[in-house]
């Protein structure tokens, strides 16, 4: 029997699950190797679990979703989060810093119709996660590599060092050194292919933190470039801003200011 694969969506933009459909050259071959039993965006017939692999996109932002993810975990042998929302809470985790009272005062015609939590949290804050694929969006090649590993019974491995390494290999001119452009590259995980510097701009951290990051010296580097206070906080509180080390660093800068 072919492995039963499911793709679940929580609060997200659909861009990470879209990477399955963007695998134009591999899609039909991959589809022959697995049974995509639950993938509502692509298939109208959905089958119940158990699932061998559950790919989970999106963060937890509603009471219903907080219950749903527990069921998904129970039904799945491997649970793999795909993307910044599922892995770090996503851009919508910016609400986690919102002044709740201020939001309440923004009068919506009928706010009682809408059910939501005050936070957006990653899947790992709710259930055990077997593997995390980072990125906003995830890289198609990484997604396929992880899928192949799981299908062959091997533990998936993705590099977690800084994107600076990839940037050098690619032969990009360093935007920090050459132009003094603020760049999150030194503390950001590799995986995107160092796209931003290749397009002449600083990295904004969409692949989340590298495993060898040094936040203290990074904050100093930012300060040397004149990026301090609110500006530094904004740069860290981005797409992966709720990730612990970036969150704590930004919170510390924000607290200093006060």
């Amino acid at each position: 029997m072919k492995p039963r694969v499911a793709v679940f969506k929580f609060a997200s933009c659909d861009g990470c699950q879209l990477q399955f459909l963007n695998a134009e050259d591999e899609l039909l071959r991959l589809a022959g190797q697995v049974d995509l039993v639950y993938f509502p965006e692509a298939r109208s017939r959905s089958l119940p679990g158990p699932y061998d692999i559950a790919f989970v996109e999106g963060s937890i932002t509603t009471p219903d979703d907080a219950r749903r993810i527990i069921r998904v975990r129970e039904e799945s042998r491997y649970l793999v989060t795909i993307g910044a929302c599922a892995t770090a809470g996503g851009i919508q985790a910016l609400r986690n810093w919102a002044d709740v009272e201020q939001y309440r005062r923004v009068v919506y015609p009928s706010p009682e119709f809408i059910s939501t939590l005050s936070t957006s949290t990653p899947i790992s804050e709710h259930v055990r996660v077997d593997f995390e694929v980072w990125g906003c969006p995830i890289d198609k090649g990484q997604l396929l590599a992880v899928t192949r590993s799981l299908l062959s019974g091997a533990k998936p491995v993705l590099p977690a060092y800084s994107v600076c390494m990839e940037c050098k290999r690619r032969g990009n001119v360093c935007v920090v050194v050459a132009r003094g452009e603020p760049c999150l590259g030194p503390v950001t995980r590799t995986g995107c292919g160092a796209l931003c510097p290749a397009l002449n701009r600083g990295c904004y951290g969409c692949f989340g933190p590298a495993n060898d990051e040094n936040m203290e010296s990074f904050v100093k580097l930012l300060a040397q470039q004149g990026v301090t206070g609110d500006d530094a906080v904004r740069r860290l509180r981005g797409i992966n801003g709720y990730v612990r080390l970036w969150r704590e660093t930004a919170d510390a800068i924000a607290a200093q200011k006060k």
Binding site: C136, P137, C192, G193, C196, L199, Y204
Partner: peptide, 16 residues
């Protein structure tokens, strides 16, 4: 640079 959440567009044009 990529098809989902491409990174080149900016106010004024493109970064490259």
């Amino acid at each position: 640079g990529r098809s989902v959440h491409p990174v080149g567009a900016c106010i004024g044009g493109f970064t490259r």
